[in-house]
Amino acid sequence: MPTDTSAAYADLPLTLSEAGTGRPILVLHGGGGPATVAGLAEHLSRTAHTITPVHPGWDGTHRPAWLTGIDDLALAYLHTLRERRLRDVLVVGSSLGGWIAAEMAARDTTGCVTGLVLIDAVGVHVETEPITDFFALDARGVAEHSWHDPDRYHLDPADVPADDLARRGADMATMRVFAGDPYMHDPTLLSRLGRIQVPTLLLWGESDRVVTPAYGAAYAEAFGNGRLEVIPEAGHLPQLEQPEATFALIDAHLRRTDSLSS
């Protein structure tokens, strides 16, 4: 995908990949970085205009010192959509990206966001379903919590090139800035979701142990127009473990929301 840099604000350059034509879809990655949504963005670009940013601070991109909250990111992306005069935008977010998507919809005062897809999103506090402390896990623990088939996806750090390890460490440090305290949620977000009336699809891997399907059900119920779909044989990143099932559900949601907006 072609990549360019544009400015959300004077001191906030954004690295963006764009492809395709049609309805604009903003694709937001999670803590694992842009590679975790690259295949999803490529799929969606066949029928839509995809815009896939790298969150500032990930993959070595610049993060200004003032940019420390998910709400800051949400407002920066809303500003980018408005600057480009984009309307009828579907926002698709994975994990941390789903949290950003929810915050965007909650803060959208111009109605440019008309649909949401949240994939195993974090961002809310559910009393009975705590979010796993990802920072406390070793590599094996990350695999056990994140994947339906951890043996297939587990990477021994000893087998990872040093530059990749350094990049991942820097990405984790950036994620701590945005989501370390309070850990992976905004205490007020759950109570604000009811005001979001745009059609919202929440996709959840059945085997996710970072945020469980029960957490996803509580998340979906809080939206004004939310619906949960659980994907079998998938963990925290169903777009990687079960891409065909994930893409089919998003395509169907896109068709439904297209008909509502036309």
Rank of each mutant, 00 (worst) to 15 (best):
A220S: 13
P130Q: 09
Y9I: 00
G22D: 12
S94G: 07
Y77R: 08
A41W: 04
E144Q: 13
L28G: 02
G205D: 10
I100S: 02
I100P: 00
E241N: 04
L165V: 11
M184H: 06
A162S: 13
A217E: 11
Y219K: 01
G22S: 06
R107C: 03
G180Q: 10
A136C: 10
A106W: 01
D159H: 12
G111R: 05
P232M: 04
E229Q: 14
A162D: 14
R23E: 03
A102H: 00
D151M: 06
G123D: 11
T200Y: 09
H79E: 12
P182M: 02
R227V: 09
M172E: 12
T174E: 01
S6A: 04
G115A: 14
H253W: 06
G123Q: 07
P24L: 02
L237Y: 00
L116F: 04
G57F: 06
S146F: 12
R168S: 13
R23I: 01
V124I: 15
T50A: 04
T257E: 11
T110W: 05
G123A: 04
F135G: 15
V37P: 03
G216P: 01
A222Y: 03
G33E: 05
H79W: 08
A41L: 08
A173C: 03
E229M: 05
E206F: 01
R107W: 04
Y77L: 10
P199T: 10
W58V: 11
L240Y: 00
R195N: 12
A8M: 07
P150F: 03
P187E: 09
N225R: 10
P182D: 08
